[in-house]
């Protein structure tokens, strides 16, 4: 048994791969730590993958959610500027083009994941994915 009585990981509620030091495999097989990823890594991986496409998703609004520690982010996705809402924890990191990891509450992200983050703001352009075959 744990002396601290804390069975959950510090990243409870977030996927484990956002934890600083997590090993990420790019589409060409190269391994990088999550904190070392750059915009080009995502762009090149999508090109290599064949079936995935990178979309530019602009943050249109960030609103409080009824869920504790959560926010509702509205994105304008891709060339068609489709409006998509997602509800995420305030510490959930998104990858902003040319800037890197960003979350609504960077202090909390850093505290929980040790991942350095910028503040996600309205107007930021995040990397998102779609399937190429969708027409």
């Amino acid at each position: 048994t744990s002396p601290h009585g804390s069975p959950s990981s510090p990243s409870a509620g977030l996927p484990p791969f956002f934890m600083k030091g997590s090993i990420i495999q790019l589409a060409d097989g190269e391994l990088k730590r999550v904190e070392d990823l750059r915009t080009e890594d995502f762009v090149q991986s999508a090109e290599v993958s064949g079936e995935l496409k990178i979309d530019s998703s602009t943050v249109e609004s960030i609103e409080c959610s009824r869920t504790p520690n959560a926010v509702i982010i509205q994105f304008s996705v891709g060339e068609n500027k489709a409006q998509v809402c997602v509800e995420v924890l305030v510490e959930y990191p998104f990858f902003v083009f040319g800037q890197g990891w960003s979350s609504c509450c960077p202090d909390r992200t850093t505290q929980l994941l040790a991942l350095s983050c910028a503040k996600l703001s309205v107007g930021d352009v995040c990397i998102s994915l779609t399937f190429k075959s969708l027409k």
Binding site: S45, V77, V86, F94, F95, I127, L134
Partner: peptide
């Protein structure tokens, strides 16, 4: 040590194709 695929890190934000 677990290795995670790059596409796990960024969200799928495909809109629902209703039209």
């Amino acid at each position: 040590v677990p290795v995670f695929p790059w596409h796990s890190l960024v969200p799928f934000l495909a809109p629902t194709q209703s039209d």
